[in-house]
């Protein structure tokens, strides 16, 4: 009868699919990913279907998203970042879509799974490292040697820089995952309080007002977090990309 607050994170298969030994079972998570892709596509193409010179509300939202991410890339990476803009825009919209869609009751939050966020972070990390070496060759390693540091400090600084570089995918993925996990967990726990207090009786009804009010507040906060975490993920990707473009900082 009582639902576990962790139940919302469970992955339930919908249709078992196996392609060449690879488990590609269609689950509730896969369904949400497909819905996110569909909704983001709808949002982007639907808003621009008129391509009006003077935009309406929907088109303004699409243009706002475009200019927001474009500004982020331009500010943090510069003009060299232009080729990577579509990727960062996709990243931002996908994470934002997944975060926001997860706020709908009974839905599933794709980004609350560490494997998903880690995969995205790993793609960013590997991509950025790859780009760094392609653009600068071994000169990319200058990233680990801060300019202006005294020579005798280098044996200390270089390992720290390397370590901080290597932990980037972990911090990037855990930040998003933990935020989503904690927020949804908290909301479910407090929702549980409402139900259990409500089942006590009249006194419980009044007591239940508190967790209910808290959940309303949490819903607003979580929507903010959904935007914030998508933004943080995208902007950190930009910053890492900037490091790859200009390693000697």
């Amino acid at each position: 009868m009582a639902h576990s607050p962790l139940e919302q994170f469970e992955i339930n298969p919908i249709a078992p699919i196996n392609i060449g030994g690879v488990d590609a079972t269609f689950t509730n998570s896969s369904l949400m990913m497909v819905i996110v892709v569909a909704l983001v596509t709808l949002f982007l193409t639907g808003g621009m279907r008129k391509s009006a010179m003077v935009p309406g509300r929907w088109q303004t939202m699409v243009e706002l998203a475009y200019e927001f991410v474009a500004g982020m890339v331009k500010e943090n990476v510069g003009n060299e970042g232009k080729p990577y803009f579509p990727f960062i825009f996709t990243l931002f919209m996908f994470i934002l879509g997944a975060n926001l869609l997860g706020m709908i009751p009974y839905s599933f939050t794709v980004t609350s799974h560490i494997i998903v966020t880690f995969a995205l972070a790993a793609v960013v990390f590997l991509g950025v490292t790859f780009i760094g070496f392609i653009k600068h060759g071994l000169g990319f390693l200058k990233l680990f040697v801060p300019g202006g540091a005294p020579l005798w400090l280098l044996p200390l600084i270089v390992p720290i820089e390397v370590l901080s570089y290597l932990t980037r995918p972990i911090s990037l993925s855990v930040r998003l995952f933990a935020n989503m996990l904690a927020g949804h967990l908290m909301m479910k726990v407090f929702a549980g309080f409402i139900v259990s207090l409500g089942s006590i009786g009249i006194a419980g009804y009044f007591g239940a007002v508190l967790p209910f009010a808290f959940n309303i507040f949490m819903t607003g906060l979580e929507i903010l977090v959904a935007f914030l975490q998508a933004y943080v993920f995208a902007i950190l990707t930009c910053i890492y990309l900037n490091d790859a473009m200009h390693p000697s900082h």
């Binding site: 998570s29 892709v37 579509p86 996709t90």
Partner: peptide, 22 residues
């Protein structure tokens, strides 16, 4: 399966965004 569907959906979205939307 999460990885498979993540990459699949992400690549689809990327192509849509890159080729058509942007």
């Amino acid at each position: 399966e999460q990885l498979v569907w993540l990459f699949l959906s992400f690549i689809v979205l990327f192509v849509v965004v890159w080729r058509f939307a942007l």
